[in-house]
Amino acid sequence: MRRSLGPLLAAALWSVTPGFLAPASAQEAPVKVGYAKCAHCLPVALLPGLAKGATIEATGFNSGNDVLTALIAKSLDVAQVTYLHYVTALDKGFDIVAVAGEVNGGSECLSSKALNLTADDWGGFKAAVEKAKAAGTPLKVAASRGNAQDIHMRGAFLKQGINPNKDVQFVNIPNPSDHLAAMQRGEIDMVCSVEPFASQIRMAGAAVRFVLPYDQAAGNLTNLIVTRSDVIAKNRAGVQAVVDADVALVEKLKADKGVWVDVINQKTGLSKEVAAAAIENAEPDYRMHRAKTLAIAAMMRDLKYIGRDVSADVEKHMDFSFLEAATRKTRDGLGY
């Protein structure tokens, strides 16, 4: 008799509340969102708690390159990447659609104490570059190749008359969390790192701030929320739910920096002091900046990071309709 209670109870509940006990396979699958592990990216981990109308599953990756790879491989539905990743993907002909911004900033160039540079001392840096180059031992400048900080640094150098491909020796350190150790070991003379690792380097006394490299075509633009056209076609409501949550997230970050500090602390293990310093170099912004994106694409072509003019693709693959629905603003007020 006891064995029959389970099936009978289930049947009774099913008859009273049709669909209440529907199997998971019949329910809407979660929207899979990926993000990188940096100060301006980690808030994406909060999207699931802000979602309405869909379930969001957020997963962290070591870098934006890894996130983009997962999106293209269809392991993700939506990804937080950078404007630079967006342009690179278009250059390669990948199916990618930008739907919102998230947080900008997060880049800092730090110099070794041996260079004896003060903040924004481009004259002193250029003199050091020329001296080292003439001696046959060019300065070693590190970044994580292809991320926003790499491009910000290269653009800023180029604007100051320093060729990042010829005047210095570039050192690729893919995982930004490894930047501190490389500087401590004296393997590099300068690094353009991402927050919170830039603040970690500075607060550990391993290097000093040289410049925030925003004086170039990209400005401080960093993050985009992107998806693929097949995801939009299959689950437009899910993409809209992500953008709605993103808009709510940006407003939350503006109103409560404590939430931001907490998520950085929890996801990286770095202290709240480092996290608090990191977000001073970050700007929540859900807009997509079309004109500057075109300028970024032109700069990336000049730097030979892309091989063709992708201006038409940039225009074609920015879909403002989700932001318009989320904010009830027209695209002209959303960065178009």
Rank of each mutant, 00 (worst) to 15 (best):
V44A: 13
D77S: 07
D121C: 09
Q149I: 02
A73L: 09
V141S: 07
L68Y: 01
S144G: 15
G155L: 02
K52D: 13
A142W: 02
F61K: 05
C109F: 05
L50T: 05
K140G: 04
A54M: 11
L90A: 08
K92V: 06
A79P: 12
L68N: 03
A128W: 00
A132N: 08
G64H: 00
S144Y: 01
A127S: 15
I96S: 06
K126Q: 14
A54P: 11
A54Y: 11
S112P: 06
K166F: 05
G60T: 02
L42A: 07
A119H: 13
L46W: 04
V78K: 03
D167G: 03
G106H: 01
Q80S: 13
A98R: 14
P138I: 01
K92N: 11
A70D: 12
D66E: 12
A127M: 12
A58D: 05
T69V: 13
F61Q: 03
A148W: 12
G106C: 07
G161N: 13
G136E: 07
F125Q: 04
S111N: 12
I72D: 03
D167H: 07
T69P: 04
A58K: 03
V103S: 09
A114H: 14
A143V: 05
N165S: 13
S112M: 04
D77E: 09
L158S: 15
G136L: 04
V78T: 09
G136P: 03
K133T: 04
V99C: 11
Q80E: 15
G60N: 01
P138W: 00
L68W: 01
